[in-house]
């Protein structure tokens, strides 16, 4: 009786996990399957299997330029946000200074504000300043909402660093600069890499804030959204699936590398 209950409770969690992951992956799987659909105008009904969409991912008008914009914006925003956010994280993690509470609030608020408000308020100021909306306004917006996530990620890494490691370096004749270069930075670097990956995926996938500040520039999510009404080409599914697998490979490789590093040669 007791073992039966235990068996049930243990497997209940397993069953539940399978269901939960199915819920998460059903749309991804659907997107993937329909990337092989031999569609005519809109990719709604299954018409048979084809490799064509994967062979010609740019076979539809505008889809690849949109993807290109997303990648360019994503890389640029990630680069800027990672630098700015990492600097803030080091200030918060390594120094005592006045204005710490204000800084923390300023970092927290963008994460706690609905994207809609962020996008709308930025649009308001761009309009008031008479700025042309487009590539650069999107970059500005993406850097803004990515900074906080970078700060939080890198700060957590710095906080988990044993202060004795830096003390040990100082004890072993490394001055402040050498200690940072040889010990602090290499140990925080994986956190920075993780933060950059997070920033890129946030930027790449952003729709709401981008939609407010894009002007006539089209990113990949904007492309998908505007074409959803008229019927989405399967090439969008191809790109979505490809990005999914690419990201998965990067994450898995990252884990393998970090594990290998930990374990050593």
């Amino acid at each position: 009786m007791k073992t039966a209950t235990r068996w049930f409770s243990r497997n209940l969690i397993r069953i539940y996990m399978v269901l939960g992951f199915s819920y998460l992956f059903v749309p991804v799987l659907y997107t993937f399957i329909f990337s092989f659909n031999d569609y005519v105008k809109s990719n709604l009904v299954w018409r048979g299997f084809t490799w064509n969409n994967w062979k010609q991912p740019c076979g539809v008008l505008d889809v690849c330029p949109a993807l290109g914009n997303s990648i360019k914006i994503g890389l640029l925003a990630t680069f800027i946000a990672t630098i700015l956010g990492t600097l803030i994280a080091f200030a918060l993690g390594r120094y005592a200074f006045k204005g710490r509470a204000v800084t923390n609030t300023l970092i927290f608020l963008p994460m706690a504000s609905p994207e809609l408000v962020l996008g709308a308020s930025l649009l308001t100021i761009f309009l008031n300043l008479g700025m042309n909306l487009g590539f650069w306004t999107i970059v500005i917006a993406h850097v803004m909402f990515c900074i906080s996530f970078v700060v939080v990620t890198v700060k957590a890494r710095i906080a988990s660093l044993d202060p004795r490691l830096e003390q040990a370096a100082m004890d072993l004749y490394a001055d402040e600069r050498e200690t940072f270069r040889r010990v602090t930075f290499p140990l925080v670097a994986p956190g920075i890499a993780g933060a950059a990956l997070l920033a890129f995926s946030l930027s790449f996938d952003d729709f709401i804030i981008t939609n407010f500040n894009s002007g006539t520039t089209i990113t990949f999510p904007l492309y998908v959204y505007t074409h959803a009404e008229r019927g989405l080409p399967a090439q969008a599914n191809v790109i979505g699936s490809a990005m999914f697998f690419l990201a998965l490979i990067i994450v898995v490789l990252g884990q393998v590398v970090s594990k290998k590093r930990k374990v050593g040669a």
Partner: peptide, 19 residues
């Protein structure tokens, strides 16, 4: 400063550089 002293420490929990 610590790095200017002819003193070395064996830290509690060793503080070996993991990387």
């Amino acid at each position: 400063r610590p790095y200017q002293r002819p003193v070395n420490t064996v830290f509690q929990n060793y503080a070996l550089f993991p990387h």
